[in-house]
Nucleic acid binder design. Structure first.
Lengths: 258, 258
DNA sequence: GAGTGGTCTAGACCACCCA
DNA sequence: GGGTGGTCTAGACCACTCA
């Protein structure tokens, strides 16, 4: 019979019914279906880059109609989590895809040209979270964070100096390996090495002046006015997993409101 | 029978058909329906704040099924142009609605508190567009723009200095009335007085230093590092209709990536 | 209670991808 | 040619709003 929790009925309980769905307590079926799909993406049943079962298959599995499955998927597609390819199937979008990449890369040159950076890690280590880290990541006093300091350059010219703080326990797998090369697209690493998928982020942009480490890394005089972008990135689960500060003197920040 | 242009068939041409829709040449019906709805919103058939006909009525009018109408509407709802209210109807969202208001107001205080400004117009007049105006608005040499200079204050403290350039011909109705009060929510005026609805905008954020007019308006020393936000706002038709520069010393810019 | 949008189903045909 | 997603229809019932 109908079920108060978010389980689905198996094969239709009342095949003779021609009308609407089983009442199923409360939440609409397509929301339950969406959450279930999301859960399977989060827990790795379907890996980034992998394909989901076909719509008829999923409909059969969950005991709902194809239309309901489609509606659930549309939601996840809208969030940029799934990508549907006509004739091929439905894929879990990896952060390495073009669409994902530029969703989180908002820096452009002053003339509007896209910024295509290469990252270089200066240092990586686990330290006690400072007050800002704790506030951004929702952690308690004494919590540990993995801190990466890096520059992002184009044609060998460092244009961004970045400090990234990550909860130390969830990101142990990202740890040092001192001197190792590090991917520019670090969200791909979060996903591949730590199973953490960035779902969305909030940037706050302010002006700042170059302190010694920043001035040194960017090769500008201390006190130079800079753009400072603070980012809190949130996982699929809704937990904040990254607090990032990016300083730049030359680049602009692009924001599309639509 | 089928029609190459974007007209709809009247009452179903083949009522006996049980299967899919009339082939109708090329573009999917729901896209044609969406464009038609959009056109009627743009041309003022349905005014901001007004209600559309019901779904069954629209389906009848356009000769398509309700599902197709719904799909067309979902698109426009997603763009923030329509708002559906269960049991009441579907409304053309006016820019004065809360949702619309905060979609285009991205400034916050340094501590994250929302910024709730009051606008004060310093001057308004028609001038020759400068190179930046022309580039942003896609105009030719010698084009005229209506330029508004204004501050946006909270508790009487001016926190933003703003220069807004608008194509002079489309915005004649917004003209001076020297010394008149001006709504903070200027996009409401564009819509009500000039029939121009802002569909989306692109902001580019950079640092700048306070020139004399800005320093004067904001009460800071010339040369103070500022945040400069350049906005190009686009109408429903896709034409750029506003080029805006906003300077602020104290406020931050908030960007949600999701 | 009449009318509106919200959910759900079932089934048809089309367009695309790939073996 | 078989399988996948894309479009479209028709119709049922539910839930909300308002008179």
């Amino acid at each position: 019979m109908a079920n108060r929790t978010s389980t689905f009925r198996g094969p239709p309980a009342h095949p003779e019914r021609t009308g609407p769905a089983e009442p199923l307590a409360s939440r609409p079926l397509y929301l339950q279906a969406r959450d279930l799909l999301l859960r399977r993406i989060v827990d790795g049943t379907w890996k980034p880059g992998g394909y989901l079962p076909s719509e008829p298959q999923l409909a059969l599995d969950l005991g709902v109609s194809i239309g309901t499955i489609r509606k659930a998927m549309e939601d996840l597609v809208g969030q940029g989590l799934l990508e549907r390819q006509h004739g091929r199937g439905t894929q879990v979008v990896p952060h390495s895809s073009d669409r994902s990449r530029f969703r989180f890369l908002r820096f452009v040159h002053g003339d509007g040209r896209p910024f295509r950076p290469v990252a270089h890690v200066l240092s990586a280590g686990t330290v006690r979270a400072d007050a800002q880290d704790r506030a951004a990541l929702g952690q308690g006093v004494g919590a540990k964070v993995l801190v990466l300091l890096r520059t992002r350059s184009e044609d060998g010219v460092p244009l961004i100096y970045e400090r990234i703080a990550l909860p130390a326990d969830s990101f142990a797998a990202l740890k040092p390996e001192p001197g190792a090369e590090m991917l520019e697209e670090i969200y791909v690493l979060y996903q591949a090495r730590c199973g953490q998928t960035v779902a969305r982020a909030r940037d706050t942009i302010a002006t700042d002046r170059a302190g010694p480490p920043v001035a040194d890394a960017l090769g500008c005089p201390p006190g130079t006015p800079l753009l400072l972008v603070r980012r809190v990135a949130v996982a699929l689960t809704g937990d904040p997993i990254e607090y990032r500060q990016s300083w730049t003197a030359a680049l602009h920040y692009r924001s599309d409101l639509d």
